[in-house]
């Protein structure tokens, strides 16, 4: 799957998970930019991504992600394995 395609899907998931009316997707987006993004909704975010792409992360693979772009990369890497 192309990177753009993955980030578009993750943008959709973010709207569902963080209850956003609209989202200007940017790789640099992080919990600092979105009010509803807290430790708990973060877990729903991860699980929603896992379901959507049919993959499972380990704690180590996700605990150091700094922004959405890194999440997109993590998904892309997992999918290409």
């Amino acid at each position: 799957m192309e990177r753009d395609e993955i980030s578009a899907i993750i943008g959709e998931i973010m709207c569902d998970v963080f209850d956003l009316e609209e989202l200007k997707y940017d790789d640099a987006l992080s919990a600092d930019d979105i009010e509803e993004w807290d430790s708990l909704s973060h877990i729903r975010f991860i699980v929603s991504i896992e379901k959507r792409f049919g993959l499972v992360f380990s704690s180590a693979e996700i605990e150091h992600l700094q922004n959405v772009g890194e999440m997109v990369d993590a998904v892309k890497q997992k999918l290409s394995k």
Binding site: R44, V47, F57
Partner: peptide, 14 residues
């Protein structure tokens, strides 16, 4: 298990 270790959530989010 990951949710339990990471966040003390007792079962799958779904």
């Amino acid at each position: 298990p990951r949710l339990w270790y990471d966040a003390k959530i007792p079962f799958a989010v779904e």
